[in-house]
Computed example of a mutant assay.
Amino acid sequence: MAAVRYAALIAATITTGLVSGLFYGFSVGVMPGLRASDDRTVVEAMQRINVAILNGWFLLGYVGAAVFTGLALVLEAVSGGGGGALVPLVGAFVAYVVAMGLTARVNIPLNDALAQAGPVERIADPAAVRRAFEGPWVRANVVRTLLCAVAFGLLVWALAARG
């Protein structure tokens, strides 16, 4: 049972770290790089990214982080939680679920609206589409990046507590 608890915690830490890094990359590289681009380029690039990112590898990390963290939390709680990992696991799970909720309430609807705008060459006012998307999406991404970084740090703490 201890090996399964440890494996779940390692998987949670790895997948959460991957998602945190992905969101961080958008915060410090992708979106600042696109900020200097024209409206049509931003809209088209994000439309393409939003399609490309929906793949099994992304879903393994994104959903896996929640599943593995939840599993690690349940296994730790069932085992009595005497190793000091329970509190950081609870915090990590809450932070990651809040990040998922933010993604579902803000980022995904913005991505969907961007897709509904249609092919970039047919958009009459790409500046308006960009304005409606970019600011809110970037702000939400920064918050979910911070939440995922907190979750990752708490999972590292839980790993250290497990020894």
Rank of each mutant, 00 (worst) to 15 (best):
A2I: 10
A2S: 13
V4A: 14
R5N: 10
Y6A: 14
A7Y: 03
A7R: 05
A8Q: 02
A8M: 10
A11D: 02
A11V: 13
A12N: 06
T15H: 03
T16R: 01
V19F: 06
L22D: 06
F23W: 10
F23G: 00
G25P: 05
G25Y: 04
G25W: 02
G25T: 09
F26Q: 08
F26K: 02
S27F: 00
S27I: 00
V30A: 14
V30L: 15
M31W: 04
L34E: 06
R35Y: 09
R35G: 01
R35A: 15
R35N: 04
A36K: 14
S37K: 11
D38Y: 01
D38V: 01
D39V: 01
T41K: 03
V43I: 12
M46L: 13
Q47H: 11
Q47M: 09
R48Y: 00
I49D: 05
N50E: 10
N50C: 03
N50Y: 06
V51R: 15
V51M: 02
V51A: 12
A52K: 08
I53M: 14
I53R: 06
L54V: 15
L54P: 00
G56L: 06
F58K: 06
L59N: 03
L59V: 10
L60K: 01
G61R: 03
Y62V: 09
Y62H: 14
G64C: 04
G64W: 02
A65V: 09
V67S: 04
F68T: 12
T69Q: 00
T69H: 02
G70C: 07
L71P: 00
L73Q: 09
L73F: 11
V74C: 05
L75Q: 12
E76T: 15
A77N: 01
S79V: 00
G80R: 09
G80I: 08
G82P: 07
G82L: 07
G83Q: 12
G83S: 14
G83P: 00
G84N: 09
A85K: 05
L86A: 11
V87E: 11
V87Q: 10
V87S: 10
P88H: 11
P88T: 12
L89W: 09
L89P: 08
V90L: 14
G91F: 10
G91A: 13
F93H: 08
V94E: 07
V94F: 05
Y96H: 10
Y96L: 12
V97C: 07
V97S: 13
V97H: 04
V98C: 03
M100R: 04
G101F: 01
A104M: 11
A104Y: 07
R105L: 15
V106F: 08
N107C: 08
I108V: 15
I108L: 14
P109K: 01
L110Y: 05
L110F: 05
D112V: 13
A113P: 00
L114M: 09
A115M: 10
A115F: 07
A115C: 01
Q116I: 00
Q116H: 13
A117P: 09
G118I: 06
V120C: 05
V120H: 06
E121T: 13
E121Q: 14
R122S: 14
A124M: 03
A128K: 11
V129D: 04
R130D: 08
R131A: 15
